[in-house]
Simulated scan of single mutants.
Amino acid sequence: MMFSLMCAWYAFFNLLAILAYGFDKYAAIRGHWRVQESTLHLLSLLGGWIGALMAQRLFRHKRSKQRFMLVFWGSVFVNLLGLFLVLSQWSAFM
């Protein structure tokens, strides 16, 4: 049950991250309202970092911004650390 919930969580935030990056790239090209970088980082922190990484490559978006990428990789690290802690606690109960 817990594993299924975690998979659904990650799937949801990865899809949301891809959509957010795609929307942001579209808006950037057309000069419209943009998605805040803090929102993109929050999606990565919540588990959407794989989708974010895919979208960065697919849309060629945000990859050249060094500060953005530094914060992005920090959010990946924090997410993986949190996942490790959750899984280690979960396995202790089994």
Rank of each mutant, 00 (worst) to 15 (best):
A17G: 03
Q89A: 12
Y21P: 02
M1H: 07
R30W: 11
G47N: 01
W33H: 14
L42R: 00
V71Q: 04
H41T: 10
L45A: 02
M1K: 07
L58V: 13
N14P: 11
K62I: 08
L85R: 10
G47Q: 01
W90C: 09
R57P: 09
S91Y: 11
L53Y: 06
V35Y: 00
Q89R: 14
F77Y: 14
R30E: 15
Y21D: 00
A17F: 05
H41N: 07
V71E: 00
L16A: 14
F13L: 03
F68P: 00
M69D: 00
G22W: 05
S38G: 08
F72K: 02
C7M: 14
Y10W: 11
A17I: 03
K25I: 04
A8P: 00
F12L: 04
F3I: 12
G31L: 07
G48W: 03
L53G: 02
A20R: 03
Y21N: 02
H41M: 08
F68C: 06
L43G: 02
M54I: 15
F12G: 00
V86F: 09
V78D: 05
G82Y: 03
S75V: 06
D24E: 07
W90I: 09
V78Q: 07
S64R: 14
W73G: 09
L87Y: 08
A8C: 11
G47T: 02
Q56R: 10
V86W: 07
G51D: 01
S91F: 09
A11K: 03
T39Y: 06
A17N: 03
G22I: 04
V86C: 03
E37P: 06
L70D: 08
A27W: 07
H41G: 06
S91H: 12
K25E: 03
R60H: 14
Q66D: 13
Q89E: 12
K65S: 09
S44G: 15
L53P: 02
S91C: 09
L53E: 01
H41W: 13
Q89P: 00
M54V: 15
S44M: 08
L5N: 05
A11C: 12
